[in-house]
Amino acid sequence: MKGRKSSVLTIAEKCKNILASNWRGSLNTIKADSKGSKGEIYTSKVKYFVKKGKPYIWVPGNDLHNVNTIIDERSSFAVSSPFPGMAYLLKSIKKLPARVALTGDVVRLEKITSATESLKEIVSLEEKIVKESGYSVSGILGSSHLGATPRGHNLKELLEGNNQYIIYKFNVSSCSYIDGNGSTHEVELEEFEESKADPLSPFSASLIDGINRSEIRRRALILLCITQLKNNLKDALLLRIDRKGFDMLGKIVGPLRNDGSFEYQWKEFRITFEEEARHVEAFCERLVQLEEEAIKSVSSFSGL
């Protein structure tokens, strides 16, 4: 039972990873006029980053949120896990990207220097990590159409150009996790506040995209399922990553059709690391090691 618990993240950790892996979310505030709150909800996409567990949201100066929050600070914020290139597939198999939904109050920052400096540090650190990483990292990120640091690149745009923003700190009062099947899981606020995101989370979108765009690595995922999970797949795609392993979608043989052919179905699988990958380079090294072991195992079995 202990081994099983340690092979997956807690729900609170999953929420923190989603927040750390994305850079945009849906902010909801209550519409207001000179007479007060009207009860209707206004929603728009905004960019954000997380500092000490709290989202800092950058709202364009002409956005209606800036009017609404003067009257009523209550709001909610929803963020999805990154799923580059898989929107159509997930929809076809009736799966949703995992999401985190927060409720709370947004507080306008009067002094934005600290938030701006924190954002600069985040962008700079992500660029430094990629630059100093070895071949195992660059080999995967080089296959991604998103670039090496999509989150950092998108957040950097907030610091450049002539667009005016108002920055808010989001004070969380409740947290919910919505899984790929649409089921909602409430998270204790204390547990959410104490949990930390994996340091590799900011790179997850590019890592997933880079692996899924590589036919060689997708074939390696198939071999991993054969050797570790004893499942024979026709195709495989990476779905989520974390320090303890990764989840993937595998195409397996399904029911027999009337014409005698088999129908293929997508099923979710998980591969667990023996040792946790605490940073992006460690994750890529673990993955390469698993790939090599799977190839050797299959070659040995087939007598090659």
Rank of each mutant, 00 (worst) to 15 (best):
V130K: 01
K156T: 04
N181W: 06
G139C: 03
S144F: 01
K128T: 13
L155S: 06
S143T: 03
G142F: 09
S174A: 12
Y165T: 10
K156S: 14
K128C: 07
C175S: 13
K131T: 14
F170N: 15
D179W: 10
H145Q: 11
E126N: 13
N181F: 13
K131D: 07
S144K: 05
I166G: 02
E160G: 07
C175E: 10
A148E: 05
Y177Q: 14
I166A: 02
D179L: 13
K128R: 13
Y135N: 09
Y168L: 09
N154L: 02
I178G: 10
T184P: 03
E127N: 12
S173F: 00
N163T: 14
S133N: 10
I178A: 10
C175T: 13
T149W: 01
G134N: 03
V137W: 00
Y177V: 12
G161W: 00
N171H: 09
L159K: 08
L159W: 07
Y168M: 07
S176N: 12
Y135D: 12
S176R: 15
S173A: 09
C175M: 07
R151T: 08
H153M: 09
N162Y: 01
T184E: 14
S133F: 11
L155Q: 05
R151I: 10
T184Y: 05
I129H: 00
S138T: 08
S176Q: 15
E127T: 15
Y177S: 10
C175P: 02
I140L: 05
L146G: 11
D179V: 15
I129T: 12
K131P: 04
L158Q: 00
L158G: 05
N181D: 15
H153L: 10
I129Y: 00
Y165M: 08
L141Y: 03
I167L: 07
I178Y: 13
G147Y: 03
V172W: 01
I178N: 12
N162P: 08
H145N: 12
V172I: 15
I167V: 15
N171W: 06
S143A: 01
S138K: 11
G152I: 06
E157N: 10
I140W: 02
G182D: 06
S136I: 09
Q164W: 03
G182E: 11
V137T: 06
G152W: 05
E160N: 14
D179I: 15
I129A: 08
N171R: 06
H145L: 09
L141W: 03
G139N: 10
Q164F: 02
G134I: 00
H145T: 11
G142Q: 04
Q164G: 06
N163R: 08
L158W: 03
G152L: 01
K131F: 14
T149M: 03
Y165W: 12
S136V: 14
S183I: 13
S136T: 15
I140N: 02
N154P: 00
S174F: 06
Y168R: 14
T149S: 02
S143F: 07
A148D: 12
T184S: 10
Y135G: 05
T149R: 02
L159I: 09
G180P: 04
D179M: 13
Y168K: 07
S143Y: 09
L146N: 07
T149Y: 03
R151E: 01
G161K: 04
L159R: 06
N162Q: 08
K169W: 08
H153D: 08
G139I: 07
G180D: 12
S143P: 00
N181L: 09
I140D: 02
S173K: 13
L141M: 11
I178T: 13
G142Y: 11
K169H: 05
Q164K: 14
G142H: 01
S144I: 08
